[in-house]
């Protein structure tokens, strides 16, 4: 019983991180219909930026946790957002209007460039950040206990706030309206005076900021990272996006949480070696019954 509860807690925090990264995949797919394979590497870049930010802050003698975490978040989100903007500008915009396949190849190229650039500039060794927040809350359950570390709690709060703010922006603000309009019919949005190129850039920046939020949270929790860390988590987040229905924002969040929960439960109860096999099998099974994902809309051929 306590293992199940413990794995539920772990899975929820893992899932919310998957959800945050999946948002980047799903929004970009929604607006220009491409899979941004460089997105996992944007996450990886944000892990390095987090370490740099913490090092910078401690260099200036700032130690108090709230200031460090806030400073790191703002710095990382800003820098990673700039990365997102530049990637769109350099790798995707020149190919706008060409076939989807060439944009896809460009994305794979961008992913390799980012990995190698980080490897050369930061070294291939695994790096780490110090633990900033230690301690945990324990709940007694039967014979054992369930432990919720403060860091996991922080991850949960921060990612749900992040998703909440994003949902608010997309549903309620003018920018969100313009994003949704561009997603539904870019040509028409442009005829109504919306600068669609700018909106597409904005979407890339939003995706990158969400990846940056995830990057900061995971890096602070696990401590270690290397230049290859974006690959597997990127694939998992992409799976989450497909699971929830690619193109759908709540779908990405839901898909992330389902994937995280099922992975953690499987690892805790059956075998942690086969947890990736399980999560991809889950994807296959769900896609057999709902080909467009849990919350995705079935594609209707336009007549």
């Amino acid at each position: 019983m306590d293992i199940i509860l413990q794995q539920l807690v772990n899975g929820l925090s893992l899932g919310s991180v998957y959800g945050l990264i999946a948002i980047g995949y799903t929004m970009v797919y929604g607006i220009i219909g491409m899979i941004n394979f460089a997105h996992g590497d944007v996450y990886m870049v944000s892990a390095y930026v987090t370490a740099i930010a913490i090092a910078l802050l401690s260099f200036f003698g700032i130690e108090s946790f709230p200031v460090v975490i806030l400073g790191t978040l703002i710095f990382t989100i800003f820098v990673t957002g700039v990365y997102g903007w530049v990637i769109e500008r350099v790798a995707y915009r020149p190919l706008r209007g060409s076939s989807r396949l060439s944009i896809l190849i460009s994305a794979i190229g961008m992913s390799l460039i980012l990995q190698n650039y980080v490897q050369i500039s930061q070294g291939a060794k695994q790096q780490g950040v110090p633990t900033l927040l230690s301690g945990a809350i324990r709940f007694d359950v039967g014979d054992g206990f369930v432990q919720l570390t403060y860091m996991k709690l922080f991850i949960l709060c921060a990612s749900f706030i992040g998703m909440g703010v994003l949902t608010y922006i997309i549903q309620k603000t003018k920018l969100g309206r313009m994003c949704r309009a561009t997603q539904q019919d870019p040509k028409m949005a442009s005829i109504l005076g919306i600068d669609t190129d700018k909106i597409i850039s904005t979407v890339f920046v939003i995706g990158a900021t969400m990846a940056a939020l995830a990057g900061v949270l995971v890096t602070l929790d696990y401590g270690g990272f290397d230049f290859y860390v974006g690959f597997i988590i990127g694939i998992k987040a992409f799976t989450a996006a497909v699971l929830g229905g690619i193109g759908s924002l709540p779908g990405a969040m839901l898909g992330g949480i389902i994937l995280g929960l099922s992975e953690a439960l499987f690892a805790g109860l059956i075998s942690s070696d086969y947890k990736d096999v399980f999560s991809f099998s889950l994807l296959v099974i769900i896609l057999i019954f709902r080909p467009s994902g849990l919350l995705g809309k079935p594609e209707v051929e336009k007549v």
């Binding site: 442009s190 005829i191 109504l192 600068d195 669609t196 190129d197």
Partner: peptide
């Protein structure tokens, strides 16, 4: 920075 959005901003819509 050009594009069809500028035509709309110049006062024409359809």
């Amino acid at each position: 920075f050009g594009g069809s959005h500028l035509v709309n901003r110049a006062g024409l819509s359809r």
